[in-house]
Design a protein around this nucleic acid. Structure first.
Lengths: 243, 243
DNA sequence: TGCAGAAATTGGTTGGACCATTGAACCACT
DNA sequence: AGTGGTTCAATGGTCCAACCAATTTCTGCA
């Protein structure tokens, strides 16, 4: 029988609204942080109800493209273009120890690949930027006598950016956010992250030497130390009992 | 129907609606495909306006958790639980060649890690299942004298499942879907995927031998052949010109 | 000039109405 | 029995006109 009879599309108001809005953003070349027209204006201009505009904006808000502030307005949170592809992922049960370890396995995969790509592609400017972040991190490590998650994170982000593929930063940032929402104070391990410290510079050295294999290997070692810390912390707090 | 839908408290209405609804789904142990209460009923039970219910459902629809059919109802599309974590990813310009290569770099990272984890964790049953898929794929390759993307995909999925981490399958499946939406007929390269064929068995051999390093290396080689094919295809069709 | 309070702006919520689609029940005709 | 058409209630989609709550801007007094 003929399988080539796809369902037809009749109405798609809110989708049309989003397309029009994306075109508007493009035409006005609005960037992140800028405010877009009020819901009432959009409703009037597009000749649709304000409810329809709201449904469309709710979609974008759910995708993290836009932020609404009551009394103030609706602001762009990321660059939007008419040809975006959306890939919403929902992870069931991510707030227990097993879930955390699963996200860490993803991070290990991406971290290693990003470091390898970075070693291939990073130019002089990117390498200098990474080294700058590394210096800041090491300085913070000395003065505060321990890992600083803030400066550490900055270092890793600079690596993702130099990988030449924004997806790395996007995905790992999303996981990082989840990570911190549930594990802000990492399990009471005092010297958390301590063991990972030396690998930051070894990763950098491989990147600077354009050695992708070495960078991948060092990144894997780094994540391994983080996993060990987490396991120790989980054992300490007997969190393994949780569901 | 049950009366286990208590009213809602105060601000952050739509979020509260979603939480209540997630609890309801859990309590009624509703699974994918099942229909949930109508918007009017939800609005009445939760003591909330129907518009608010709609905003909440729009969120879930955007996350792919739910599907609305006008005149019929709202149906679950995936398992939902009260402790889900959402990680929406949007990639700008994913329908050009550069975007495709970027997704492939992510896949390379995850594919290698999944293969390595699989080599560590797969038990006899999992290894047997993977070999079964591999045999099917090789048989299809012989009879049809070329790669079959369907059987190939089945093989890879079995590896992801045996990795013990459902996130691998989730993320790569999402990318696979995007991939096929825009590149269903891969660029007119006749023997597309041909070069990747032998690596499937070498990956399997490493997994069966519980050799994570080898599995990772072979997976990287496999993706490299796919990237080469894509580059050749892009050159053929002069797709590199597309913005 | 400085600042507290009023006024305007803007997203959030409500309730009610009507439209478009779906699916089941029903009916007429073959 | 089965085929096709009709009716009708249920349900999601859209619209409107308010009002609420948070924020920003303006204003007038000290």
């Amino acid at each position: 029988m003929t399988d080539s009879l796809p369902p037809i599309q009749t109405t798609a108001r809110d989708d049309a609204v989003l397309k029009a809005l994306a075109g508007f953003v493009r035409q006005e070349s609005l960037g992140p942080g800028e405010r877009l027209p009020t819901e009432r204006i959009l409703a009037e201009r597009l000749k649709v109800s304000r409810n329809t505009v709201r449904e469309a904006l709710t979609r974008w808000e759910g995708l993290g493209l836009v932020e609404r502030r009551q009394g103030s307005g609706t602001y762009l949170k990321a660059a939007v273009s008419p040809d975006m592809l959306h890939m919403p992922l929902t992870l069931a049960g991510g707030n227990d120890f097993a879930g955390l370890m699963r996200t860490l396995e993803i991070r290990r995969a991406l971290e290693a690949e990003a470091a390898a790509l970075c070693a291939v592609r990073a130019g002089k400017a990117e390498i200098a930027e990474i080294e700058r972040k590394l210096d800041i991190m090491e300085e913070a490590f000395r003065t505060r006598a321990g890992m600083s998650s803030e400066e550490d994170w900055e270092f890793h982000q600079s690596v993702y950016r130099a990988s030449g593929n924004p997806l790395f930063e996007q995905i790992i940032s999303a996981m990082h956010e989840l990570f911190h929402r549930f594990w802000e104070h990492p399990l009471g391990v005092r010297d958390f992250g301590h063991a990972s410290f030396p690998y930051h510079r070894s990763i950098f050295n491989c990147i600077a030497a354009h050695d992708p294999l070495g960078a991948r290997a060092e990144a894997l070692k780094l994540i391994a130390t983080v996993e060990d810390d987490l396991k120790r912390g989980a054992a300490n707090l007997k969190l393994l009992d949780r569901k």
